[in-house]
Design a binder for these strands. Structure first.
Lengths: 213, 213
DNA sequence: GTCTATACGATGATAGAC
DNA sequence: GTCTATCATCGTATAGAC
């Protein structure tokens, strides 16, 4: 195994500390100290603290959205082979399920999802715009497929309901974070959380809301 | 009209700047300058920047939750008079509706709701704990009423679905913020947003998900 | 190309005079 | 209650070593 590059070591330390302390409480001095790098290396490799944040996000969002789109592709193929539209549940499952699987398989990614949430609501707009740029292509593909499976609804209503779905999903992640009672000292998820049960409940909830006449 | 106290002037200026620039981009020097107060007055009146943030939140959350509980009380009274359980939709309406009415009637409160969102997901936990402490009594009252109206569901499932509901609501507020194209220079909501339509769609969505068998 | 040492301006916080 | 002065720490920028 090759020694991780300075760039990667900074990103690893940053992901951990941003998730633990939030953006403005995590200092670059602490991040670089843990990474064994010089303070100035952040600006050399990333340009600024904000850009470092964005790079850490992108590292995980891109593969996650890849999984989502791949599953959506399979759902559409199967439906086409059977000469039907994909069901709303199939589409929403392709979108939602990878999220909780991601957290379940890689618990440290919970911190990454908290960073995502912070981005979504960045009041100043800078981070939100960057994040939306990363998400937009995937979101649009699902949105259009959902419109195809819900032809009796106006596109505005489908859009709103898709946003409600995203909100439910985002808040589920926050719920998981709140269940973390490891005392603010480190990130951990209790062993006894049934991810698959939460996942099924979430899919049931949003499918029902999305299909409402 | 009495001259607003220094304390109140700082809170007004803080609410505006926190909403506009986010927590860590809004500086106490700018806030106190606008409020016509001295920098040190923040620490004297509130203790810290974080505590100022919390005080601004509490000022609006308390009356908002008052409206929610009052409406829930009327819903329960009506149902009791008719010898039935309140419907899920009645309960969720009492919880959800005041939010969008608040924003519609008081557009500058959109900033306050962005502050709420920031609190919900504060990774370090400090703000989240404070905020949850403010919300908990109201949340519990609605949770118990919902359990009463959904006796065939386990309490865990009702709880999860209530969390999904809150997530949808929170993301709706973020949606409104994203529709704000006033150029990051000031807060404003486009005139042509139909709050009541969004409100009805949201209630329809969460009621359907909550009632799912 | 990478990395380091160092310096600069701005910030949140605090102590003490009034 | 309010203000001035001061402090440690922060993100950032740059000059120069390897």
């Amino acid at each position: 195994m090759p020694e991780p590059s300075t760039r990667n070591k900074i990103m690893d330390a940053g992901e951990h500390l941003f998730a633990l302390n939030g953006f403005h409480r995590a200092s670059l001095r602490e991040i670089t100290a843990i990474a064994g790098a010089n303070l100035a290396a952040v600006n050399y490799h990333f340009g600024s603290k904000e850009k470092l944040y964005e790079a850490i996000l992108e590292r995980r969002i891109t593969p996650l959205n890849g999984i989502r789109e791949e599953r959506m592709g399979r759902v559409i193929e199967t439906a086409e082979a059977e000469n039907r539209q994909p069901s709303v549940e199939e589409l929403l499952r392709a979108f939602v399920e990878p999220t909780l699987e991601f957290i379940s398989n890689l618990p440290e990614s919970l911190g990454f999802f908290m960073m995502v949430n912070r981005c979504i609501m960045d009041s100043s707009g800078v981070q939100r715009k960057y994040f939306m740029g990363l998400m937009q292509p995937t979101l649009m593909k699902f949105y259009h497929s959902l419109c195809g499976s819900l032809p009796h609804l106006s596109r505005e209503v489908v859009y709103m309901r898709f946003m409600f779905t995203i909100g439910s999903m985002a808040h589920t992640i926050r719920m998981l974070k709140m269940m973390d009672h490891s005392g603010e000292k480190d990130l951990a998820i209790p062993d006894d959380i049934d991810f698959s049960a939460i996942n099924e409940e979430l899919i049931k909830f949003v499918t029902s809301g999305m299909e409402e006449v």
